[in-house]
Design a binder for these strands. Structure first.
Lengths: 187, 187
DNA sequence: CTCATAAGTAAATTGGAATTTACTTATTGG
DNA sequence: CCAATAAGTAAATTCCAATTTACTTATGAG
């Protein structure tokens, strides 16, 4: 290593930068359009290293989705403010934090990715959320949350309907808050 | 033509059978996994004819999506039963009728398809539905319907969460009905 | 210092589907 | 019946990203 303690070659660091670039690219582009070339050039690495460190594009996607779910996102502060918090998080995402929803939705576009995504969705989102919610029917409530969140995300970002853009009109914002809230209020 | 009036060759009939096969295959498989070979062999036609009759796979997808939106689907009978009707239609789809939602969601997987899908979504679903709903904010209400419908479809069919399978538990069914209904009740 | 090995690279290969081409066969008006 | 043309086909071509290969360069233990 040189004076600054920075190695020119560092497998772990390279692997990590590919993983981070993958999270970025896979959450901005549909899977088929997210090329390894784009990911590795963003990471400043050689495309052949994907194979060495992750095995394949699919495995890299899986690793990126997993990483974006760690730590478990979406964990709300209180039950009464649940809807408010969720809507606020959608409308002003925390900068730098990777939102796992795009990757989840994009995973819909390949059968093998669907299987991986479903597994992670259950283990890393639905079950933890259900545990936090507690009580009978908590898993069902968590699934309802996903229904609203994904539907909203789809028309906010992927097929951008005007009604779902920007800060939302006041009524729609209120409707969305109630939709999230009703998902956990009703058993 | 022969005695039964059936031509061995009939461009219009061939084009139509490719289009119908495309609707079927594109609504069951993600775009990338729906091969022209599968579509044309289902249609009993040669793969090269896609190019002649539709120009390209993308154009065929566009034609298939358009056809699945004709006549305008989802048109509910009455405003009060709106949610009930919609949920019933999801849980027991009319056999043989092509549901446009899968293609709409799969179109999410390629930037060029997104543009086509968004255009058709507005013209063929959102605006007609808004016109039927009437009043100020009708277009926004129609967009909210899409949010619920797509989210539900995603976790019912693409990333099948147990909570959204089969006939739904009674509470979830009631929740879903209210979710649709509240989309058009609240301004 | 040196050499065994880990890390990284450029270029070749693969693979699979879409698209094009060159061709064959059916249809139909005259 | 006979062109002329429309319809259909098989096989060749193209395209392009993922993956593999054969190689170069850096690292660090002894």
């Amino acid at each position: 290593m040189n004076a600054a303690g920075v190695r020119k070659r560092d497998a772990e660091r390279t692997r990590q930068s590919i993983l981070e670039a993958a999270q970025d690219v896979f959450s901005r582009h549909p899977y088929a359009e997210a090329s390894l070339k784009e990911i590795t050039s963003l990471a400043g690495a050689n495309a052949a290293l994907v194979s060495r460190y992750f095995g394949s594009k699919e495995k890299l996607f899986e690793a990126a989705l997993t990483a974006s779910l760690d730590p478990t996102p979406l964990m709300p502060a209180s039950r009464v403010e649940f809807g408010e918090r969720l809507v606020a998080a959608f409308i002003r995402p925390v900068p730098g934090r990777i939102n796992p929803l795009p990757m989840l939705i994009f995973a819909t576009a390949e059968a093998r990715l669907q299987a991986v995504a479903l597994k992670l969705l259950r283990e890393r989102i639905v079950l933890p959320l259900a545990e936090w919610l507690g009580g009978v029917g908590a898993e069902v409530q968590a699934a309802r949350i996903m229904v609203i969140a994904s539907g909203f995300f789809t028309y906010r970002s992927l097929l951008p309907l005007e009604a779902m853009q920007g800060d939302l009109d006041e009524n729609t914002r209120a409707w969305l808050v109630r939709a999230f809230q009703s998902a956990i209020d009703a058993e």
